[in-house]
Structure formats: C-alpha cells, structure tokens
Design a protein around this nucleic acid. Structure first.
Lengths: 119, 119
DNA sequence: CAAATGATTTGATGGATGTCAACATAGAGG
DNA sequence: CCTCTATGTTGACATCCATCAAATCATTTG
C-alpha cells in the first residue's frame, strides 16, 4: 500500500455529483448501487466507531495505533480501515513507522446533503 | 402485522438524543451499535432504492404496489420493507387492500444532524 | 545485518444475509 | 362462501462477511 487514493472511490463524484437529496428525487438503480456502498461501509459497529474516532480527532487524522482499542484484534482493525478506505470514506498515509488515516474531504457534507430536508 | 410502531426502533431517540455529530465527538461502543443498525438498513441497493422511492413520493407515502419494480421478487420486496421498518426508518399502515409505507418522522433530519459539519 | 515495532495480507471458519418458491393471511366483491 | 388481488411469512440455499491466527511487509534502531 502506498498513497492516498489507492483503491478508493471518488466519493465526492459519487455522492455530490450524482444525486438529489433522498426526499426530493428517487435514486436510479445505478446510483443506489453506488451509494449503498457508502452506507455499507458504516453499517458495521466497529467500522462506524473507527470512523467516528478519526472524524472526531482534533487534527483531523489518527494513527492506527491510537484507535486500536475497539475490542477486536489488530488485523481486524486493519481490515475495517481498508474497507472504509475502499469505500472512499478515508484516506491513509504512511509517515515513518506509522500509518495515519483521515476522513476524505467532502465526505461528511456530501452525505449530509444526501439526507438534507427538502420540505 | 398491524400498526405503525410494530417491531420498530424509536429512531428519534436513537439518533437525535444520543449523539453529537460524527466530526465532533467519538461514538461510544453502545451508540455505534445502535447507529450502525440504521446504516445497515440502507446498505443494500434494493433497500436504499425502496427507501428513496418512498422518501421522494409527493404525498410522503407509497403503496407497496407502486414501488415493486426494483428487480427482485415480491416476497423479497416485502422482506426489505420489513427490515427498513424494523430499523425505524419506515412506518407502515394498511388501508383496505393496500399497505402504505412512509418515512418515519425525524429520520432524515436526525441522520443529517449526525453527519453535519462542525468546522 | 539483525532485531523490534507497526501495519497489512492470507487462509480458514462460523454466522449473517439476500434471494426465491411455496404457502399463508387479509380484504374486496361477486 | 369462494375467488381474486395484495402482502406477508417460511424454509432452503448460496453468497457474503467479520473475525482471528499466522505469515508477510515496512521502517526504525541497535
């Protein structure tokens, strides 16, 4: 593994550019496929917790070693972080011995936009 | 099956009352468990499409017969609608021969709040 | 280089889940 | 009642997925 965009989806293109808010216009089959990937990434309690730990980090990023205490083994943590990265929700970068994860830019606002009220 | 609240989670209590936005404070293990249920409900393409069809309905509700063309069999549609209801995302009501589904009140705004930007 | 630390990958396994066919239930209308 | 239409439920099955142990890769340090 090497750099930021490796194996990740362009989430901004996926969410921001494809869809009206859910309450405004129904999703096409294709868009549903794309967006469900994002919800699926957050559908596991451990993954959601890891994502929240990173999102809530003051500096906006967290070392894997700082977020490992979620009740599962370290390989499992790594597996979940990979899933989050592949879904386009996280970016990762190696600095010296450590790998840092951060929320991909635009992710939170894109998802909030999808769920925003239109009434 | 009979009425609105049958087998459903109180989603407003689950989402609105438990959590700060993801970018603000990390979720507890318990809250992660609760909220991941909601994401899981939307993690299937067919379910997400059904939910979007209902959410985008002008009157705010849809008869099952109006949203069945999503590429799977009728029992499967029924199964997915049940999952969405059990997760607290939808409510259902029988009127004459037909069953109507609508988005549970507060759901969209609660989820949007969870993902709202805090920066 | 060798050892140690941090992180990912691989392989295996038990459990969860989406799907359909068949059957059951509910109401409408002869 | 009996039938037709609209939904929901059950049972079976194939696939997906979370998890861990073991092995591997990457980087620092002795």
């Amino acid at each position: 593994m090497s750099n930021l965009a490796l194996g990740s989806t362009d989430l901004q293109a996926t969410v921001s550019l494809c869809c009206q808010p859910l309450g405004k216009e129904e999703l096409s089959a294709a868009d549903s496929e794309k967006i469900s990937v994002i919800f699926k990434a957050l559908s596991d309690p451990v993954r959601l917790r890891l994502f929240s730990k990173i999102a809530a980090q003051p500096g906006g990023e967290a070392c894997v070693c700082d977020i490992q205490d979620v009740g599962v083994s370290q390989p499992t943590v790594s597996h979940h972080l990979r899933k989050l990265r592949e879904a386009g929700l996280l970016e990762s970068e190696r600095r010296a011995s450590w790998v840092y994860y951060r929320v991909a830019p635009g992710v939170l606002s894109a998802m909030a936009g999808l769920l925003s009220q239109t009434t």
